[in-house]
Simulated assay, not measured.
Amino acid sequence: MTTAEHPTPAQMRLLKELDELHLPPEDLLDQLQTYAAVAAHLRVPDFKITPLFTDAIGLDALWSNVRAGVHALGAAMATSPVAVSPQTARSLQAAENIWRSIEREFGMLSSMEVAELLGSRKPNRSLASGLRNDGTIVGIMRGNAYRFPGFQFDADKGAVVPAMPKLIALAREDGRSDEGLVYWLTSPSSLFHEQDRPVDHLHEEEQVLAAARDQFEGTW
């Protein structure tokens, strides 16, 4: 007999809970493909979709991700006054996963944290807001407030990484949003050796600026 013919209790629980969610198989597959695509984009090591009847521990972890994602999407869509298509829901969830991964890796600073990092004598929110407005740093709206990706700051020097204002200027000239710039910075790029991310070369100013010009000005 094969493992597939004798599912474990954990695997049976997964199937039961999936059935209770009334989630069509094709929607479940789309969810898994989304997680796989996001993991590949962010280069998560050793990520794989566990076959349904092979590893009970991996299955439980996979189920936790799927269940949390489905419930979160359901709660968000329930508050929307208009219908949300499955395609839109998947896109939103994928984007949210990316922002959360960026926050885990680099941190998303509050306005007060930015002021403290930059050595403001009287930290306040206006400093970060002013730097964002004049194109010195990028801010991403999270919830009801702007958050500032930590990679754009040199914590040891208490300063903004010098390349950031120039990158922001290039991006805005090309009509790109702050979100678009952050996405490009944290995505693997063929413009770097071994598909490195631009963010990994922020302190190599000329190289990252040349890559940005090639990417932005070469986009039609």
Rank of each mutant, 00 (worst) to 15 (best):
T2M: 09
A4C: 12
H6W: 15
P7Y: 10
P9D: 08
A10Q: 13
M12K: 15
L14I: 15
L15H: 15
L15W: 07
K16Q: 11
L18C: 04
D19F: 09
E20N: 06
E20P: 01
H22S: 14
H22M: 11
P24M: 06
L28M: 03
L28Q: 03
L32H: 03
Y35H: 04
A36D: 06
V38Y: 05
V38A: 06
L42Y: 05
L42A: 05
D46Q: 09
D46N: 09
F47E: 06
F47W: 05
I49K: 04
I49F: 02
T50R: 07
T50P: 07
F53Y: 12
T54W: 01
L59D: 09
L59H: 11
D60Y: 15
A61Y: 14
L62S: 02
W63E: 13
W63R: 06
S64V: 08
N65Y: 12
N65C: 03
A68C: 12
V70I: 03
V70H: 02
A72L: 15
L73C: 10
A75T: 05
A78E: 12
S80T: 10
V82E: 14
A83P: 05
V84S: 04
V84D: 07
S85P: 11
S85Y: 01
R90F: 03
R90C: 12
A95F: 15
A95S: 15
N97V: 14
N97A: 14
S101N: 13
E105T: 03
E105A: 08
F106Y: 08
G107A: 01
G107K: 00
M108V: 02
L109K: 06
S111Y: 10
M112A: 06
E113Q: 09
L118D: 00
K122Y: 08
P123Q: 02
P123Y: 02
R125Y: 15
L127H: 01
L127F: 02
A128S: 05
G130H: 08
L131K: 09
D134P: 02
V138E: 07
G139K: 04
I140Y: 11
R142W: 06
G143P: 02
N144G: 12
A145L: 15
R147P: 01
R147H: 07
P149Y: 07
F153W: 02
F153Q: 01
A155W: 09
D156V: 05
K157G: 15
A163P: 00
A163T: 02
K166V: 02
K166R: 10
I168P: 01
A171W: 06
D174P: 14
R176F: 12
R176H: 10
R176M: 10
L181C: 03
W184C: 00
T186R: 08
T186G: 03
S189F: 00
L191W: 13
H193K: 04
D196M: 05
H201L: 00
E204A: 09
E204V: 11
E206L: 07
Q207N: 02
Q207A: 08
L209M: 00
A211M: 01
D214T: 13
Q215C: 08
Q215D: 11
E217P: 07
E217H: 14
G218D: 07
G218H: 03
G218Y: 04
T219W: 13
